[in-house]
Amino acid sequence: MTPTLFQALLGASFYALPPSVRALHGVRGRAVYAGRATIHRGRNPLGRLCARVAGLPAARADVATSVTFEARPASETWHRDFGGQAMRSRLHRDGRMLVERLGPLRFRFALHVQDDALWWRVGGVRLLGVLPLPAALFDRVYCREAEHAGRYTFQVEAALPLCGRLIQYEGWLEPADNDQPA
């Protein structure tokens, strides 16, 4: 069987992930996960503008959250819904890097497994797919995926120099009734 996008990127390390993280990144075809999230946004006007341009959701506490995954071996599309606020991204592989297109930005992430968690760290960014931005600007952008009490958990942080925090969101997801349309 052809490996999923994350299985291909992580190789043997994929199997060191907690079961709920492996299950989520083992999705083939279409699947829906649902849970709760809390979203914090920065106060800096420039940071707020950047978050808006990237299509990031507004601050909210304990909001119903769902993610619809459309997974193929070479790419995935994630349709996130934070209490009615949509955020979509497309992911694919470029060598050993995960590329995520989010709004006008293309992030290149190095993935690694450490302490029972999957970490995403920025290795490069392009604006509109062509203009490279200094990777050092994105040192405070990361994602951590783990498991708590048998549930998949996530924590995402994005902060930039001069802008401060753009967004920080965290929460949990579990498989929804994937036999029903979303």
Rank of each mutant, 00 (worst) to 15 (best):
T2M: 13
T4E: 13
L5S: 01
L5C: 03
Q7I: 11
A8Q: 14
L9Q: 01
A12T: 04
L17N: 08
P19R: 10
P19L: 08
S20A: 09
V21T: 10
R22W: 13
A23S: 09
L24C: 09
R28L: 15
R28H: 15
G29R: 13
R30P: 06
R36A: 14
H40A: 06
N44M: 03
G47H: 03
G47C: 02
C50G: 05
A51V: 13
A59N: 06
R60H: 15
V63I: 10
S66W: 05
V67E: 12
T68M: 03
R72I: 08
S75N: 11
S75V: 01
F82V: 05
F82Q: 10
Q85V: 06
M87G: 10
R88T: 12
R88Y: 05
S89V: 01
H92R: 00
R93H: 12
R93Q: 14
R96N: 13
M97V: 01
L102H: 00
G103C: 02
P104N: 03
R106W: 08
F107A: 09
H112I: 00
Q114I: 14
D115P: 09
D116G: 02
D116H: 04
D116L: 02
L118S: 09
W120Q: 15
G124R: 09
G124Y: 14
V125D: 02
L128I: 05
G129I: 00
V130Y: 06
P132S: 11
P134L: 11
L137H: 04
F138N: 10
R144V: 13
E147P: 10
H148T: 07
A149N: 14
R151Q: 07
R151C: 07
F154A: 01
Q155P: 02
Q155L: 09
A159K: 09
L160P: 14
L162F: 10
C163W: 04
G164R: 07
Q168F: 12
L173C: 05
E174Q: 04
D177S: 03
P181I: 07
A182C: 12
A182M: 07
